[in-house]
Structure formats: structure tokens, C-alpha cells
Design a protein around this nucleic acid. Structure first.
Lengths: 181, 181
DNA sequence: GTGCGCATGTAAGAAGTTACATGATTTA
DNA sequence: TAAATCATGTAACTTCTTACATGCGCAC
């Protein structure tokens, strides 16, 4: 059975204290959303798959009509997570951004439209940076109190990088290429 | 018929002078690869779809045994591309990065392993920045000579952003969080 | 008692990838 | 003449998304 980055994300979230599918999804929404978003329709089947293959224990809450399941990594699950973290295997990355694609083709627009587009992209970077600082970093900082530091580091990296892009686009807007430059 | 960002990418590449499926793929590899990669198995069916629906003209090279097709955008295709460029519709973005996901969960590693991981990510950013400068920017700069400026702007943005991340990770490596900080 | 957040799942489909299959043309 | 590159396409598969369906529990 092949584990994907989403599998490791989920095993990692279990280790950070999220034990139900719903909780894992909520946790991802306030932490990994900017570099590895997941959807509920992924989470439930993948949890079942992890349990079926010995990477997670499933424990059901019996005293409710509607059953709820709690998951914890097995020894095998913890070992697999650690092995992946240590593995030098080429990291899967995919970055797709329709906004940058528009900018790439912006020569077809009028100079005013070009400035508008640059401005929209700048605002988008601003918003991303602030969302990370306001919604994601505070959660990471509570984790920091019991010694889990990297979620906050990653959040800072994200917020700083978007702030850098924002500033870069602001400078481009100032000195935007004009006819005859 | 719904046009996707990949459709617009392909219409845009046609306008920049790439007229065959193969040429479009090659052009994307030295330009949009970092923010909208495409594969040949996407390109050919999508070109057929664009032609079938009136967004592109297909012209076949007849004097060869193995047929080659050249595409140009129709009036409808050019209009659709322009409308999309101007549209304020929310840009589709997806950023998935297994390396950052590893960093997010790096608290499970030993301090030495953490430094190694940071270093690998730093090197990766270094490589990306240089690939853009060495392989993508020069091509964009030849386009600049006939007034097409934005490909070079986008390449600069990419190279600078990766250089910023590289530098950020180098600083993290210097001041890496240690037991007892 | 109604709406919202918690909670679990399935179904259908979009988008993209890798591998396969084929053949032409160029260059060392 | 062999290898690399140009060139076009299909098949099978993976991953992920949206929409659907269901129901609990609490707060107002």
C-alpha cells in the first residue's frame, strides 16, 4: 500500500492531537491549508485505508446513535511517518497559479488594465500574508507552548514570503513598464 | 464548453508564436513551468477540443506522411483569451509542497535531522531560483525585444521569490531552534 | 423549533500524470 | 547507422473537488 503526502499529513495531525476525520480537516484548515489543502471527501476514505492497512487504530465511540471514530497511529504508522520525514526522496511539489498566468500574458492588455491586474495580485498577496498571521500563526503559537515549534516556523515563512511578493508587486506597480520605456 | 486555465495558456502560447502541440509544450517548459506546468497528454486532446469548439483553427501539413497540425486562435479564441485576462474572477491557485509539509512536522526529528531538512529545502530554493534565471529568463528576454515584457517580469518575480525563500531558510539554519531556546 | 456547527460518509466527475505506441527527421 | 529529438496521440490511473445525503446536539 502506497502512502501519499496526504497520508503523512493525516498521521501527523493525529500525532498533534486531532483524532477524528473532522478534527483533522479542521486542523489542516488552520495550518497546512496554504501548502497542502485537503478536503473531507479525501479524509474519510484515507482514514479507513490507513486503518485497514495497519497504519492507524480505529476506536469507535459506542454510546452514540450516530457512530464517531477516533484514530491514532499504530507503531507501524509512526515508523512510516518518521521514515518519510527522514527520506531524501524528491519532494512532490505543484504550484499552479492562474493569477500569475494572467500576468504572464498581460502584454495583451492596455497599460491601465495591466496596472489593475498587478494591483489585484498585490492585494491577493497582502490578504494571504495577513490570513496566515491572523488565522494560522496564533494556532501554531499555542502549539509552541508544548514544544512543537515547526508549525509556527512554517507559518512565519509563509507570511513573510507573501509579504515579500506583495512588496515586489507594489514596486512593479510604481515602476510599471510603460509604452516607450 | 468550459475553458480552463490550461486552455488560456495554450491560446496564449499560440499568440506568442507556438503553433503545434509539441511547440506549445516546449514553450511552457521554458516559461510557465513554475506556475502552470502542462503535459503533452493534456495538450493534444485540449487542442482538438479548442478546434472543435471554434476557439482555434487547425491547419494540417499535408506533404508529410505523418501529419502535423498547426493551430492559431480564431477571432472567438482571441476574444475569449482577452475576456479571461480582464475578468476579475477569483484566480484558481493551488500550492502543494511535500517539502514544506515535512518541515511542518519536523518536530518529530532530531535537531541534526531538522538542520539537514532545512538545508535541503534551502538548496531546493536555490536551485529553483537559478533555474529560472538560467533557463527561463533568457528566453523571456528575447521576447522582450519585440515588446512582450511580462514573461520576463514573471520570471524575475519567480527568481526573486525563490531567492528570498533561500535566504530565509539560510537564516533559519543559522538560528535554528535548539533544545532549551 | 430552527438554524448552525459538529460529524461521517458516498457519488460523480474534473484535471492531470505516467506509460505506452508509433513514426519522422536530424545529427554525430 | 544509431541515437537523439521532433512529433502525435491513446489508455489507464491517481488525486482531488463539488455536490449530495444523512443525522446529532446545542444555543437562541
Amino acid at each position: 500500500m502506497k502512502l501519499t503526502p496526504a497520508s503523512y499529513l493525516m498521521l501527523g495531525m493525529m500525532r498533534l492531537g486531532a483524532s477524528s476525520g473532522y478534527a483533522i480537516k479542521k486542523a489542516a484548515d488552520v495550518s497546512t491549508r496554504f501548502f497542502w489543502p485537503i478536503s473531507l471527501a479525501q479524509v474519510y476514505p484515507e482514514l479507513a485505508r490507513l486503518a485497514r492497512n495497519g497504519y492507524a487504530n480505529r476506536r469507535e465511540d459506542p454510546h452514540k446513535a450516530r457512530k464517531r471514530s477516533f484514530y491514532t497511529p499504530t507503531e507501524q504508522g509512526r515508523a512510516a511517518l518518521l521514515a518519510w520525514l527522514r527520506s531524501p526522496r524528491e519532494a512532490h511539489t505543484q504550484f499552479r497559479d492562474e493569477g500569475i498566468l494572467r500576468l504572464f500574458l498581460a502584454d495583451m492588455l492596455t497599460p491601465e488594465e495591466q496596472l489593475e491586474l498587478i494591483n489585484r495580485l498585490r492585494e491577493r498577496a497582502h490578504k494571504a500574508s495577513h490570513q496566515i498571521r491572523d488565522e494560522i500563526l496564533p494556532v501554531a503559537q499555542t502549539l509552541e507552548q508544548n514544544g512543537t515549534r515547526y508549525p509556527a516556523i512554517v507559518a512565519e515563512l509563509g507570511a513573510d514570503t507573501y509579504a515579500y511578493v506583495e512588496q515586489w508587486l507594489a514596486a512593479l506597480h510604481e515602476n510599471a513598464p510603460r509604452q516607450g520605456d
